[in-house]
Simulated assay, not measured.
Amino acid sequence: MAKKPIAVRRGDEGDTTGVKFRGDQRVTPLKTAVKMAERGDIPGYHAVHGKSKDYIRANPDGTKRNNIDDLPDA
């Protein structure tokens, strides 16, 4: 089922630790959201495997309003 991120939970250093999706009551852990993005369950987003951790990122589309870092706090 396709999901749309609407908010994020951030850790003490401001890093994203979880993602809240439209229609969900709970915040999904980032590790789970990365797996969802890899499967294509989050249209418009993809998984990034960084040196220190994995995360999700919006596909380039010329707008900032759907960027994970620009979503409101969950």
Rank of each mutant, 00 (worst) to 15 (best):
K4S: 06
A58K: 14
D70N: 09
I68Q: 04
A2D: 04
V27I: 14
I56N: 07
E13G: 00
T17W: 07
H46F: 14
K53A: 08
G44N: 06
R39K: 15
T28W: 11
P29I: 02
R22V: 03
K64E: 01
P60I: 07
G14A: 02
D41F: 08
I68G: 03
H49D: 06
T28M: 15
K53G: 02
L30C: 07
Y55F: 13
G23F: 01
I6G: 10
F21K: 12
G14S: 02
N67Y: 02
E38S: 11
G23C: 01
T16M: 11
K35G: 13
Y45T: 01
Q25G: 15
D61V: 09
G44S: 13
V48P: 05
D24W: 15
D61Q: 09
K35Q: 14
Q25R: 15
K20C: 11
K20Y: 12
K3A: 11
P72S: 12
D69E: 05
K31L: 13
P29R: 13
D61R: 13
E13W: 04
L30T: 09
A37W: 06
K31D: 07
V8A: 04
V19D: 11
R57S: 05
P5R: 13
R22I: 03
G11K: 00
A7G: 11
A37R: 12
D73Y: 03
R57N: 02
R39T: 05
Y45I: 04
L71K: 13
K31T: 10
T32M: 15
Q25V: 10
A37P: 11
K64M: 06
T63H: 09
K31S: 10
M1W: 02
Y55N: 02
I56Y: 03
P5T: 03
P29A: 02
T17A: 02
E38G: 07
D54S: 15
K20H: 15
V27Q: 08
T28I: 12
G18D: 06
G14L: 00
R39D: 14
V19H: 14
D15G: 05
T32K: 13
D70K: 04
N66Y: 05
D12N: 07
P29M: 05
A7H: 12
T16A: 15
I68V: 09
A58S: 12
D24E: 15
P72K: 06
K51N: 02
D15W: 02
V34G: 09
R65W: 11
A7T: 10
K64A: 03
R10N: 04
M36E: 13
K64F: 00
K35P: 08
T32C: 01
Q25D: 13
I6F: 08
